[in-house]
Simulated scan of single mutants.
Amino acid sequence: MELESQHVKLLCATAEGDRRAFAKLYQATSGKLYAVCLQLLQRRDLAEEAMQEAYVKVWHNAADYHNDKGSVLVWMVSIARYRALDILRSASYRRETRESVQEQADSSGPQGALFEQRDKVRIDECMDTLEDGQRQMIQLAYFRGLTHAELTEHTGSPLGTIKSWIRRGLQKLKRCLEP
């Protein structure tokens, strides 16, 4: 059976309250969802939290899925991404991140903090050398976690243009940051 049709079948059964189908759907998709969450959050505990919240939402909203929203996996990944982005936006995440960075700076001593600050300044200086479109796309994609499709929607620019801005911007950043 084709993977997508298997996902649809499992999701439909999940919508009817079938826990076994939900467990199979989890087994089939959890690796991908976890990878998405971990990539955005950079912490296992937060990625697991986002993934758990995403699967709770999938369980409760399985009946709301429609084929015109894309494949089941794409629909589930978008739920997981939004849960991860919600965590990133939360005040507690920002506070924990600040505390973690401060602890790392304290443990590495003044020299480590100096190197870290110098690298941050260098990255900021290199970002300032980018064209406006390149800088905006890189900030939205890498610092706010928007996908190419969301960038297209957000900016109204064609997908090819967005990809070009990001590619050229990253190449320019790489050249700027190389010793």
Score class of each variant (00 low, 15 high):
R122W: 03
E103H: 15
R144V: 04
P158K: 14
E153R: 12
R144N: 08
R122L: 04
G133C: 01
K120H: 09
S100T: 09
A105T: 10
T155E: 00
L159W: 08
V121D: 05
Q139C: 08
S108A: 15
T152L: 00
G145S: 05
R118N: 05
I138T: 11
Q117W: 04
R122S: 06
E125N: 14
Q136H: 06
Q139M: 01
E150Y: 02
D128V: 03
M127V: 10
V121K: 13
G109W: 07
D128W: 06
H154I: 04
Q117H: 11
T152Q: 09
E150P: 00
S157E: 11
R122C: 07
K120C: 14
F115W: 06
E131R: 13
Q117K: 14
E131M: 09
I162V: 13
G112E: 10
M137E: 05
A105L: 15
R144F: 08
E131V: 12
T129W: 06
R118G: 01
P110V: 04
V121A: 10
R118K: 15
K163R: 14
F115R: 15
E103F: 10
G133Q: 04
E125W: 02
V101H: 10
V121M: 13
E131N: 14
Y142W: 09
L114V: 00
G112V: 04
T147M: 03
H154F: 03
L140M: 10
M137Q: 01
F143M: 08
P110S: 15
H154Y: 08
I138C: 03
A149M: 02
C126N: 03
Q117P: 09
R118T: 14
T152M: 11
I162E: 06
A141L: 01
M137V: 03
G156Q: 03
T155N: 09
H154E: 12
M127K: 11
F115C: 09
E153L: 13
Q104W: 12
F115G: 08
A149Y: 03
D128K: 11
L130I: 03
E103W: 11
Q104E: 11
S100H: 13
M127G: 01
A149N: 06
A149S: 14
Q134P: 05
Q139N: 13
H154T: 05
M137S: 10
E116H: 11
E116P: 01
L130H: 08
Q117V: 03
G156H: 04
Q139F: 08
L151K: 08
G156K: 07
E125V: 05
M137F: 00
E153M: 13
Q111R: 09
P158L: 10
Q134H: 02
R144A: 09
D132W: 07
H148A: 00
G112Q: 09
T147N: 01
G112S: 10
P158F: 10
Q104A: 15
Q139H: 11
D128A: 15
R135I: 01
F143T: 08
S108P: 06
E150K: 01
Q104M: 10
F143D: 00
Y142T: 02
I162Q: 07
P110F: 07
T152F: 01
F115P: 05
P110G: 05
D132N: 14
D106K: 11
M127Q: 04
L140W: 07
E131W: 12
S100Q: 15
S107K: 14
E150H: 02
